[in-house]
Design a protein around this nucleic acid. Structure first.
Lengths: 148, 148
DNA sequence: CTTATTGCAAACGTTTTGCACGTTT
DNA sequence: AAACGTGCAAAACGTTTGCAATAAG
């Protein structure tokens, strides 16, 4: 995992290259994703920043805008939960898919080479120029099974 | 593919078993999904029913409620498009996944045994009691590639 | 001093809800 | 008659937008 200073530099030069400005708000969104490992909704991130930096003013709109930016630049990635919105995570790691617990919402990441290969193969079979792919396994995690 | 009368009977007995009532509106949602092959938003279905049965009054809320019912009962299934909502299809066919064109929205269905097996294997590895799984390959379909 | 970014509140599109009225059983 | 389903309009939800004020380059 990249350490924070390097990540910050990466972000800064990305901004510079696109004639975008480096702001406190943008930095805090990045920092928040970095310091809390896991998957967060825009609202989660907004709340965390307000809790941890009570003197910084940040609007939910800025959080949305920054997350979109980070995702477009490949620094963060999101999983969609349909109508229930998206959750973001730092996207420094290699591509991976998700197991999601339908009871407690826990998210487990996994990567499977066979599945990745198969996906490419299928795209090719249908003459699809693949841009992205997602896989979600929904179920009940071990902990929640034990609770019952 | 099941023919319509049998499907209707299946739906009717499902309703009866759950002390739910058989109504014209519920029937039309089912019929609409059956007669138009493909994937439709609740709004699509609402519009189609109003067009094809102008003398029947049906509210969008009823369409939503019926689609949820059909999905819970395993008669229909949906693909999520995030903020853009969901599309429903009759779920009589075997499980399958989707290729989705990011330009024209075309949806291609596919099924791959290797992927299905791998998914089960992964769920087992993490002691997950699998309830569902989805896979989406996003890309540009052949037609849209040719247009460019 | 120019340009991008911000917070705010209003607008958005999809989905859900409360409720009085209608229909099915 | 009892119970469930309906349409409607309002509310809810996550998200986006317009804009005047502010901050970065």
């Amino acid at each position: 995992m990249t350490h924070y200073p390097a990540l910050l530099e990466q972000f800064k030069s990305l901004l510079k290259n696109n004639t975008l400005k480096f702001t406190k708000q943008r930095e805090l969104v990045l920092k928040c994703l970095y310091s809390h490992q896991g998957h967060f909704t825009p609202e989660d991130i907004h709340r965390l920043i307000k809790e941890e930096y009570p003197d910084i003013n940040i609007g939910i709109a800025t959080v949305y805008r920054t997350l979109t930016l980070l995702e477009n630049e490949g620094i963060a990635s999101s999983i969609s939960f349909g109508t229930q919105g998206k959750k973001y995570e730092l996207g420094l790691k290699a591509h991976h898919d998700h197991l999601i617990c339908s009871q407690c919402g826990a998210i487990i990441e996994f990567y499977d080479e066979t599945i990745e290969k198969k996906q490419e193969e299928i795209a090719k079979r249908f003459n699809f120029q693949m841009q992205d792919h997602t896989m979600k396994i929904i179920g009940i995690c071990q902990k929640c099974q034990e609770k019952q």
